[in-house]
Design a binder for these strands. Structure first.
Length: 426
RNA sequence: GGAGAGAUGGCUGAGUGGUCGAAAGCGCUCCCCUGCUAAGGGAGUAUACCCCCAUACGGGGUAUCGAGGGUUCGAAUCCCUCUCUCUCCGCCA
């Protein structure tokens, strides 16, 4: 959610941002400002009436205290019309306020000046490439074939027990996954992130806070009986962790990390894109969240990106970093990088991390604030990134570190966690 | 799951229909006093929104005492619904 005052004073920038992102129509801004104007004048009228009513009530109280019942009674008789008026105004006010809110929620975040303008993923900028995306060896197999043959990941039994996209990881694959989680969490701790263990279900307010509702509620699994949502990413509980709080200046910046499973309905996905570990309904991820001073937000985005990149470099996985163009970056972000690893068997890039700056967009909706030098409250800026999403990293390892006999050379940094240098093929 | 108690400002905690956005204490900030320390005195100290004035400062108003609704001229205080917390019992990793 953007600041209305900002929209009022920078209407043209906001409209241009919308055009660049290709969402909604700029007329939305005009309609919003109109509604806002109407709402504000009605607030004034209503508050004035309420003031009158309060003044009278106070007067009555005084008179009663002095035992002047008759005089009090006289005033009381004159209040019924006022009461009715207030009630009417309040109803109108409710409607307008709601309209204003709805319009406001539909205005996307404005892209940062450094973001390339574009309409589709083709116009994303390759920001960085690391390592050599290799040609597949003739014996090198896609990860899904290998894991099925070796019994390391059991998609079929997962489908039996729950459904498609809910695999079992068995033996060495389960251990490899745990090794990655531990590695990522330990590295995040070194980097200054505070580790959180979080609820895996959230209520509607939290989903609203990070913007899954009203925009993307179809992505989430719902537990209607208890009115919970299964988290689609740890971003939701972690960012909401400090919702409705005022953070002292000295506390900033706050870095949080959490490992969680993530559940996504991924409605409408099928075909070869979702084979194996490419896309699942349940997957594991280590998430990174930053709450920072507005002045440092874009620097924090760079360091977040660099940190996520360093994980892939330490694992020896070739990757590239994309700077997302305006049309491909999403509603809530002002700037976003995607990290993609190379899958040699599929000869394609797979997204394993997305690092975003939301500016004040999320925090405003959550009333996540800090107290500045002057003691005034201001909205915190939030960022997040994956550090990293597990399945595709695992897929990359299973392919890149695959040896001719089907065994897997364990990346050096994971060996302490695995207690072995190789995962033997059976 | 059953029975009961409760939810007030950064914290503790008063307040059961009228001048209460809320006593008091603690904490915090500024000032004064004392040669440092301790003690003491004074002032200030919630959040959001609207309006005026004005790009600083300032002034006025509205709302908020867990949330939402209701009664009343007037609600922290009375009524209803919900949420959460605590105690006891049951169950349980």
């Amino acid at each position: 959610m953007l600041d209305v005052t900002y929209i009022r004073t920078h209407a043209e920038d906001v409209k241009q941002g919308m055009r660049n992102k290709g969402v909604e129509t700029p007329e939305l801004v005009d309609k919003l400002l109109e509604t806002d104007e109407a709402w504000r004048s009605l607030v004034k009228e209503t508050d004035d009436l309420r003031n009158e009513s309060n003044t009278k009530a106070r007067k009555i109280g005084q008179l009663m205290g002095q035992g002047k019942k008759d005089e009090a009674q006289e005033i009381i008789e004159h209040t019924s019309k006022l009461k009715e008026e207030i009630k009417q105004k309040e109803e109108q006010l409710d409607t307008l306020k709601q309209q204003r809110e709805e319009l406001l929620l539909r205005v996307p975040n404005v892209p940062h000046a450094s973001v390339p303008v574009g309409h589709s993923e083709e116009e994303n900028e390759v920001f960085k490439t690391w390592g050599t995306p290799g040609e597949p060896e003739k014996w090198q197999r896609p990860h899904w074939e290998l894991v099925e043959e070796q019994g390391w990941i059991d998609f079929e039994r997962g489908a039996k027990v729950t459904g498609a996209g809910f695999p079992f990881y068995v033996g060495p694959a389960a251990k490899l996954q745990r090794a990655l989680i531990n590695y990522f969490l330990n590295r995040a701790a070194q980097e200054g992130y505070t580790e959180l263990q979080v609820p895996y279900f959230v209520n509607e307010e939290s989903a609203r806070g990070t913007g899954q509702i009203p925009d993307k509620e179809d992505m989430m699994y719902e537990i209607p009986r208890d009115e919970f949502f299964a988290i689609p990413t740890a971003e939701v509980p972690v960012t909401n962790f400090r919702r409705d709080e005022i953070i002292e200046l000295e506390e900033l910046p706050l870095y949080y990390t959490a490992y969680t499973p993530c559940w996504r309905r991924e409605a409408g996905s099928y075909g070869k894109d979702v084979r194996g570990l490419n896309r699942l309904h349940q997957f594991d991820k280590v998430e990174l969240v930053k709450m920072v001073h507005p002045d440092t937000a874009y620097d924090e985005l760079e360091s977040l990106r660099e940190y996520a990149e360093s994980l892939l470099e330490e694992l020896g996985i070739p990757y590239r970093t994309l700077l997302m163009c305006t049309g491909d970056m999403g509603f809530t972000q002002s700037k976003k990088y995607d990290l993609e690893v190379w899958s040699p068997a599929q000869e394609r890039w797979l997204e394993v991390s997305s690092c975003s700056n939301f500016g004040s967009f999320q925090a405003r909706r959550m009333m996540l604030r800090y107290r500045n030098d002057e003691g005034d409250t201001e909205i915190v800026h939030t960022l997040n990134g994956s550090g990293l999403a597990l399945p595709r990293v695992m897929a990359a390892i299973l392919e890149i570190y695959q040896q001719e006999d089907g065994s897997i050379a364990v990346p050096e940094v994971l060996q302490p966690f695995m207690g072995a240098e190789t995962i033997q093929a059976g």
